[in-house]
Design a protein around this nucleic acid. Structure first.
Lengths: 184, 184
DNA sequence: GAGAGCATGTAAGTGGTTACATGATTCC
DNA sequence: GGAATCATGTAACCACTTACATGCTCTC
């Protein structure tokens, strides 16, 4: 059971999901490819943390839908009592930013303009998701789901994503404002 | 030449550094252990991206101090013209946050209190560093080094670190304000 | 019929961590 | 003498990515 396994278990704990669904859902919090996820699910099934059910679909291929077991819930609770390890952020733009002085402002600006676009795209997606949660829980704007609501976790996470995204946008715009517009 | 190699090259481009120094300096932007860095430096030396000089020290063990070559500078410039790959963030706290509802508020609170302390520590370190840069470049509070200054990159990066840190602190405090204080 | 999305898996290779190994120097 | 920091390296292992492989279903 590594960190990604616990992450998958977290998602499954809220509602049964297929490996494919898990792969899509976990991206914002812990990027992982399907090739990493499927073997972990098989292991967790062997260790009775999850069970699966084969679900036939008429409009799509069949799938394995995983559910958490009582044993899995206990593992999750135990894991939550342990301190979280330090966050790891790896961003090539940070490395490039360190030596932008070597190249023309136009080249530097492009890096930050691209990144700005990336964050604007993310921002819109997070906004949509948070609106969905509020609709699902019948909440008004800015109202927070109750601590015991299964949506509480998703809500605080989306807020974090939203806040980080806005900060990143602010930073990119500031950097663009301090890079000279042109140079020959 | 992978991303970490270019990151090392970025740092070396500003001033000659030993493998040990590089290991310490690159942590905030691209965490890496010495065991990963030393072999990459040896490779880059073989490919004439960097050269090293053995420096004897009286108060400390001898070291290899690496400098960038003309060829290395060209590689850096070329790398800067390529778009930066998407940032990767992996934070165990995000996964735990998703299922905090399963445990008592006291256990959840601890996770965020610990993280808050972590970010406060970081914040102080970044503040100190930014003050050092402004002193080194003879700048006033809020004044930005010129684009061509070798400190420009470090300055914008430290600002990013500072802003992100503050946003994370804000988020942790908000989460603590929406987790009920106790429960029996 | 081709392409895109859904769905699951394995194999090979790279990136990154932990552990092993050594040794100098300084401070307590 | 022991612990901490500086300094460099290798080996084994785990995490992660890319590529290979297969097949269903829907839309154009």
């Amino acid at each position: 059971m590594n960190t990604l396994s616990y992450g998958l278990l977290s998602l499954i704990s809220h509602s049964p999901l297929s490996g494919y669904d898990l792969m899509l859902k976990i991206q914002p919090f812990w990027p992982a490819k399907h090739s990493q996820i499927y073997p972990l699910l098989a292991n967790m099934e062997k260790e009775n943390q999850v069970t699966f059910e084969l679900v036939s679909q008429s409009d799509k291929p069949d799938k394995k839908v995983y559910s958490i077991t009582a044993e899995g819930i206990e593992s999750l609770k135990l894991w939550l009592t342990e301190p979280a390890s330090d966050p790891v952020m790896r961003d090539e733009l940070m490395l490039k930013a360190y030596c932008v002085s070597f190249v023309d402002p136009a080249i530097s600006r492009k890096l930050f303009i691209d990144r700005l676009e990336y964050y604007h795209m993310k921002l819109q997606r997070y906004k949509d998701k948070i609106a969905n949660i509020q609709k699902a829980d019948g909440l008004k704007e800015g109202e927070v789901p109750s601590y015991r609501s299964p949506l509480f976790g998703a809500y605080i996470l989306l807020n974090k994503a939203l806040m980080s995204c806005r900060t990143n946008i602010e930073w990119c715009e500031w950097v663009l404002s301090v890079i000279p517009p042109e140079e020959k």
